[in-house]
Amino acid sequence: MTDLVESATGASTRGGFADKPVAKFARSLFPAFARLAPNAAANLALKLFLSPPRVKTPSWERPFIESSAPGELTVHGRPFRTYSWGNGSRTIVMCHSWGGRATQLGNFIKPLNDAGFRVVGFDAPAHGSSKGKQTDMMEYSAAVNEVVANFGPVHGVLGHSFGAGNALFSWERFGFDVPRMALIGCFSNATWVTERFGEILGIPNSVMREMRATLETRYGGELNWASLDICKFAQKFQGDLLMVHDRDDNEIPHFHAERIVETAARPGVTLMSTRKQGHRRILRDQQVVARVTEFFSADT
């Protein structure tokens, strides 16, 4: 969710274009605002934290939209867009990143279709062609569950970044049956994401604690940041798990995948590490696409 910080403020944690002076200014102002009005600062922080950026769909992704069978589902009373490709007997669900959309994972579609899978993707609320300005892990994970419930049984879930952590979180929350997950650029701990967000914006820890508490209160005890430990979910998940992570990923550093694999510590959990792909180019790496397809196709 570090992208959220970048989109809201122009601040950059990785290779964007040069910072806006105004973004630097905003970062310098946040600590003073937090001292003057900590509650208001927490509310502003939460608003920024829950607002994903929207990027125009690039032309290379459009053929994926045009070749899909579109659909619509509802989560928390809000509609969101679904896409389906192919008629394979088994189904793979793709979960996109924060600020992303289904077709960002488009390079996986044909190889998975060719391997006999139907591929299903979705634009989470406030993402891609789905409406809305804000969302969070509770809603995203519930959306994943809706997709699984409507398109299942599901053979595998492919997640990237925010979508990867939420794939496991959704499985933990709803307990659906899925034998395999391939998670690319996954974070290991949701609190780390909030801490990184606060660090980039210069928000004091006390305000970040308040921000987290505000969201917990909103969900009436259903959400507990301390328990949003993706490592533990991976440990509990008994299916096969393929973690894919780039050693030069500056958004979600490689140690997250290492932690997940070390915590799970069981056969069936493997790590594929790449280099020079970063957090996003990795989705277009042919070796990654081939490895993920092979992982889902094993025993077929």
Partner: peptide
């Protein structure tokens, strides 16, 4: 051009011109 857009642009430029724009350069 926010960060996500800049990533898309950089990747497309690399493909178009056959070059590699590293993060430090892109940021500057």
């Amino acid at each position: 051009a926010d960060s996500l857009a800049s990533v898309e642009i950089v990747m497309a430029l690399e493909d178009e011109f056959g070059i590699e724009i590293d993060e430090q350069l892109a940021r500057s």
